[in-house]
Design a protein around this nucleic acid. Structure first.
Length: 425
RNA sequence: GGAGAGGUGUCCGAGCGGCUUAAGGAGCACGCCUGGAAAGCGUGUAUGGGUUAACGCCCAUCGAGGGUUCGAAUCCCUCCCUCUCCGCCA
């Protein structure tokens, strides 16, 4: 959520900034609603003040033994006017809110212009895509040699876009998780947290998933209004919802490993083969709650932490800055890390690291006390995947494949796999 | 799931239709006092919003949402959470 004061300032300037994100701000509607809101609010509060005062005088008159009937009549009429005024105000406020909740975050100046991913700007390329003296296969073709990666059985158990893993592939998947967690905890200074995989609507509102993106979520039956988490970002960021954090405690750096559930509405036909796009996948998520104005440094740092995993696994990748049109709703700047997949002969997203500045913090009401003024102020939030485990598994399988159809286990993962060095299918 | 007790400011805690502008205490900050400190005394100490050039003034908030009433922390309804006991349970 943007600072509501921005909607009372230079709307044309704001509209220009949002246009970079391909969002068209309805300045006329906002301006007119704002004017009505202002007038109605002043009016309503004045009426409320009058009612409060008069009601209070009834109490005094009664105590003094005076006739209170005329006063009661007077307040009764006032009450009707107040109710009408309140109703009108509420309606305007709701309409303003609907607009406000739907406005995306403003992209940072450093974000390139562009409509879609084709305009994303490559800022770094790390490692050399390995040249194979045989035809590199896709992970599906390698893993389905045996049954260690089994989509058919998963489809029987549940449906499409789920997977069953067995044996060393399941082990490799778990090893990746453990390796990532340990690295972030012990080398990068994150605190491990265990969080619920089911959250309420307030939490999803806080991160910006609701009210606009409910279609991407799995909602549970029942009257709790619960949802499966689409990413650990939701429960982790909500650790600080409605909190005033001790400034000395910042930055808070959290890491969690969770499953993620996404309905993948609107992605029919995309990445239908293999583990790239699943309804259920595992992710190691990094979240930093930081001092305002340090978030861009934190973004660089956090992205570096995700990169460190790719580097330790010796997986070639590139780093891109998302252009305005490709940037997520809540983000002001996002780096995507794209890992090289020899089977697809392409770089594919494996991590997305974003700075939300105060956009999420405002929705979350996550604040820290300014040590100088002693006033609560919104913190900034930064997060990113470090990394998506399923996709990391795909990357390892494809990059470490051998001519004989086996997969070599990367050095750093062997301690987590009982020293297995080679996976056969 | 059943029975009971609760949810009030940073914390403790009173209030249970109008004398609350949420008492009283603790903590914290500043000041006085002191050689310095403690004690004592005094002053201040929530959040969100509106309005204002500013001082300020105003509105809302006593777990959440509805309702009754001229007026609700207080009464009624629904829900959430915490604690105790029972049941079920990995």
């Amino acid at each position: 959520m943007l600072d509501p004061k921005l909607l009372r300032g230079d709307l044309d300037e704001l509209a220009t900034q949002l246009l970079k994100k391909k969002y068209v701000l309805d300045t006329d509607a906002i301006q007119s609603l704002e004017e009505q809101r202002k007038q109605l609010q002043i009016e309503t509060e004045a009426l409320q003040n009058e009612r409060n005062t008069t009601s209070k005088s009834i109490g005094k008159a009664k105590a003094a033994g005076e006739d209170i009937e005329p006063l009661k009549q007077q307040v009764g009429e006032l009450g009707q006017k107040l109710d009408a005024s309140k109703a009108a105000l509420t309606e305007i406020q709701e309409r303003l809110q609907d607009i406000q909740f739907g406005i995306p975050n403003i992209p940072d100046d450093s974000v390139p212009e562009g409509d879609d991913e084709d305009s994303n700007l490559e800022v770094l390329r790390w490692g050399q895509p390995k040249s194979f003296d045989f035809d590199a296969k896709e992970h599906v073709d390698l893993a389905e040699q045996g049954n260690q990666m089994d989509f058919q059985t998963a489809a029987k158990i549940t449906g499409s876009r789920f997977s069953v893993m067995r044996g060393n592939i399941a082990g490799l998947h778990r090893a990746l998780t453990q390796f990532m967690l340990n690295t972030h905890i012990h080398d990068h200074g994150y605190q491990e947290v265990y969080v619920p995989y089911i959250v309420n609507a307030d939490s999803l509102f806080g991160t910006g998933n609701l009210p606009k993106f409910g279609d991407d979520l799995f909602k549970l039956e029942g009257d709790h209004g619960y949802y499966l988490i689409p990413t650990a970002e939701v429960p982790i960021s909500n650790l600080v919802r409605d909190e005033i954090i001790d400034a000395a405690a910042l930055p808070l750096k959290y890491v969690a490993h969770t499953p993620c559930f996404r309905s993948e509405a609107g992605s029919y036909g995309k990445d239908t083969r293999g583990m790239i796009r699943q309804h259920q996948f595992e992710k190691v998520e990094l979240v930093q709650i930081v001092e305002p104005n340090t978030s861009f440094d934190a973004l660089e740092q956090l992205t570096g932490h995700a990169e460190a995993i790719l580097q330790a696994l010796d997986l070639p990748y590139r780093k891109v800055v998302l252009c305005g049109g490709d940037l997520g709703f809540s983000s002001t700047k996002t780096f995507d890390l794209e890992v090289w997949l020899p089977g697809q002969n392409a770089y594919r997203e494996i991590s997305s690291c974003s700075n939300f500045v105060d956009f999420q913090a405002r929705r979350l009401q996550a604040r820290r006390r300014n040590p100088d003024t002693n006033k609560p102020e919104l913190v900034h939030t930064v997060n990113g995947s470090g990394l998506a485990v399923g996709r990391a598994l795909v990357a390892v399988i494809e990059n470490y494949q051998q001519a004989d159809g086996t997969v070599t286990v990367p050095e750093v993962l062997r301690p987590y796999m009982g020293k297995v060095t080679q996976i056969e299918f």
